[in-house]
Computed example of a mutant assay.
Amino acid sequence: MSDERKLNVLVLWADTRAANFGLRVLSHGNAGLIKDAFSSDATVDFQDFGPGDSDTSFGTKSIIRNIFRRSGPITEKIRKYDLIVDTGAGDSFADIYGLKRLFFIAYAHQVIKKNNIPLVLAPQTIGPFNTKIGRFFARRSLKIARLVTVRDTASAEYVQTLGRSADATATDVVFALPSEHVARAKTYDILFNVSGLLWFSDDHGNSSRYRTETIEAITRLTKSGRRVDLLPHVIASKSGNDDVDASKELTELLTDSGVNGVDTLIASDLTEMRSFMSAAEVVIGARMHACLNALSVGTPAIPWAYSRKFAPLLGDLGWRYVIDLSTSTAPAAETVSMIDSLTANPEADLIDSIRAKAVSSLGDYSRKLSAVVNWKSDVSN
């Protein structure tokens, strides 16, 4: 190999231009950690299920074109890289989003194995797999990976039940992003992220109850003198029914019930999204990365948790302000109570300690990542 050649790395299930800002977090956070691991001696590309930043997709049509050929589109793409880092799209290495998505992930892993390219599972939630075929795919993929990294202890314990020990536990890569955590005037009071995933569908909980509790929480807060603005974290989704659509419907319902003056902030990019959050007193959200983005820039956040991915990760960090939508009998009332508590004690010291703990855990992961490919040794041969 030439000394000038850089390590070529592909980050799976991430997109710097994604409608979902969580995928943008996964892109930039993982890219930073990869460059840290290899002293910036790496080029990093991104591949989502659809094309996104890539020149192809890893979806159904590409799999059909690839599966019976020696060199189909997915194989050709994979062969360009020295290392593959799989983000699991944060929490998609599970069967809660359906077996089709899990199959896409598992098929990519098989192509990677066939071409003898190192596969790393970056910090992510793993499981649950509630189907036999889901557990089959999971076990096979875990055997393929050279490094398995989970972002919470519950995932570490779950991986153990599948016959593989996690090699590392590190928190979410959002804490690897540059922080806008600076002393600044708080332009916003409460930013409320309304999730289109929960607003329009019952796939992850009772949507009618979610809408009712969201309206009640904002009504209570505005009546108590707090200012609430909406902050979509998934925007301009091609499939529709994103957080902007949910925010629009919510605003209309609030107006009909006499609650006026609730604006919607739409970020143009990830930097602006994080800037909005750093200028807020509190962020409330059902998108987990909306809440993690907030905590990573020093702003208290109250997640409305709809799946197993929330509580273990936040609990490991030491953040206790979490509403579990599956068990809470009064999410709106609990949220108002938590905001009152945070107003009395903003928890700045706790958030600072969480950030330090998170950065340390990601540093440990980055060092283990650097050992997967001995790149300096490779380029000298």
Rank of each mutant, 00 (worst) to 15 (best):
R140W: 01
R140A: 05
R140M: 05
S141H: 05
L142H: 04
L142S: 01
K143Y: 00
I144M: 08
I144P: 06
A145Q: 02
R146E: 13
L147N: 06
V148H: 05
V148Q: 06
V148L: 09
V148A: 01
T149Y: 10
T149R: 13
T149M: 12
V150I: 13
D152Q: 11
A154E: 09
S155E: 10
A156G: 11
A156T: 12
E157T: 03
Y158C: 09
Y158H: 06
Y158G: 05
V159G: 08
V159L: 10
Q160L: 08
Q160E: 13
T161M: 01
L162M: 12
L162C: 11
G163F: 02
R164T: 06
R164P: 01
S165F: 06
S165I: 01
D167V: 02
T169M: 07
T169S: 05
A170M: 01
D172E: 05
V173Y: 15
V173R: 15
V173Q: 15
V173P: 13
V174Y: 00
V174E: 00
A176I: 01
P178C: 09
P178K: 12
S179N: 03
S179V: 01
S179A: 04
H181I: 14
H181A: 15
V182R: 10
V182Y: 03
R184S: 09
A185E: 11
K186N: 06
T187N: 02
T187K: 09
Y188E: 07
D189C: 14
D189W: 12
D189G: 14
I190C: 02
I190M: 03
L191C: 07
F192P: 02
N193T: 08
S195R: 05
L197Y: 03
L197K: 00
L198F: 00
L198A: 03
F200C: 07
S201K: 13
D202G: 04
D203F: 07
H204S: 10
H204K: 12
G205R: 13
G205K: 14
N206T: 02
S207P: 04
S208H: 14
R209C: 01
R209M: 08
R209K: 09
Y210G: 08
R211K: 14
R211Q: 11
E213G: 12
T214E: 04
E216F: 03
I218Q: 07
I218Y: 07
T219Y: 06
T219F: 02
T219P: 06
R220F: 04
L221E: 06
L221T: 02
L221G: 06
L221Q: 10
T222Y: 05
T222I: 08
T222C: 14
K223M: 00
S224T: 06
S224R: 12
S224H: 04
G225W: 07
G225D: 10
R227T: 15
V228A: 09
D229H: 15
D229Q: 14
L230F: 12
L231T: 11
P232N: 11
H233F: 08
V234S: 07
I235Q: 10
I235S: 10
A236W: 00
S237F: 02
K238H: 08
S239G: 06
G240L: 01
N241H: 00
N241Y: 00
V244T: 15
D245M: 06
D245I: 01
S247A: 14
K248M: 13
E249T: 05
T251G: 14
L253I: 04
L253Y: 12
T255E: 13
T255K: 11
T255M: 04
D256A: 13
G258P: 02
